[in-house]
Design a protein around this nucleic acid. Sequence first.
DNA 1: TCCTAATGATACTATATAGGTATCATTTGT
DNA 2: ACAAATGATACCTATATAGTATCATTAGGA
Lengths: 136, 136
Amino acid sequence: MKLITRDTDYAVRALREIAQSKEKMVSTVYLEEKLGIPRAFLRKILQLLQKSGILDSAKGNQGGFILARPAQDILLLDIIKVFQGDVCVSECVFLKEPCSQKSCCPLRGELKKIENYALERLGAVTLKSLSANTRK
Amino acid sequence: MKLITRDTDYAVRALREIAQSKEKMVSTVYLEEKLGIPRAFLRKILQLLQKSGILDSAKGNQGGFILARPAQDILLLDIIKVFQGDVCVSECVFLKEPCSQKSCCPLRGELKKIENYALERLGAVTLKSLSANTRK
DNA sequence: TCCTAATGATACTATATAGGTATCATTTGT
DNA sequence: ACAAATGATACCTATATAGTATCATTAGGA
C-alpha cells in the first residue's frame, strides 16, 4: 500500500534541489546528474510540474526550471495531486458500479477518518519544511 | 490511492454475512447469491481467509465456512493483511534499490505518522463492530 | 545568422498488480 | 455410489506504474 508513488518521490527530490539552487534556472541535465533519476522520466515529471503551475520554465539555451512561487507556499499535498490525483482513501472500490451498500457502507466511516487525518498532515508539509529537514 | 482493495472489501462483506448466519456452515454458493460476488473469485478469497486462520472450513456435502474465532476477535487490520500485506504507508518506494537518502529521507517522518494513525484506527475496528453498524 | 542547448508535446513500450476465471483433485453426508 | 462442497493451482485480462523516444520549438551566444 503506497501513499507516495515513484514520480511523486522523484518530484519532491527535484523540487528540493531546485529550491536550494542559487542559479536562475536549473536544467534537467543538472538534476539528472545530481539525483540519478533517468533523464527522460525526469523531463516528463518536470513538464507536469510546469503545467500544473508549481514550476516556471524557460526554453532555449540556458533555459530550465525554477519554482513558480516560494517554497513555503508549495505543499506536499499539491505535489501528490499532480501525479496521483486527489487523495481519496475512502473512495468506494465500487464507484463505477451499483454498490448495494452505498448509503450505509460500514467501512466508509473509518476510512474517512483516516483520510481526513492524512489530508491534514500532508497539507501541513511545505517544500520548505522538507528542504529544511535535510542534513548531510 | 486506495487503502482497501476489492478482495478485502469482498472479504469483509462475506465475513459479515458468515458472522450473522445461524447455520453451522455457510457455502460459497449461498454467499454468491446473497452478495453478488463472482463465485470463482469469492472461492479464492474464502480459501485465503481459511489459510490465514480467520475462517474454518469443512469439505464435502453440507460443508462450507465458519468463523474460526468470535467476531469481536477479528480485526479489520487482520483482514486487510491477508490480501494486501502489511499496512506500510511509509515504505520507501526504493526499497529494492540503493536509495541515497535512506538515513534521512525527509518524507519518511510525515508518512510514518500517517501510517501509525491508520494502524491505530484499523486495529480498533472489529468484524463485530462492522456488523453492528449495518441497518437495513 | 546559425548552431546548440534547452523545453514542449506526444506517442510508445515494458512490467507489475488487480481482478477474475477455470480445472482437477479430494472429502464427506446421504 | 453420488452429489455437493472445499483444496490446490494455473491461467487470463485489463489497468496502472514506470520508463523511453522523437520531433518540434525556442532562445542565447559565437
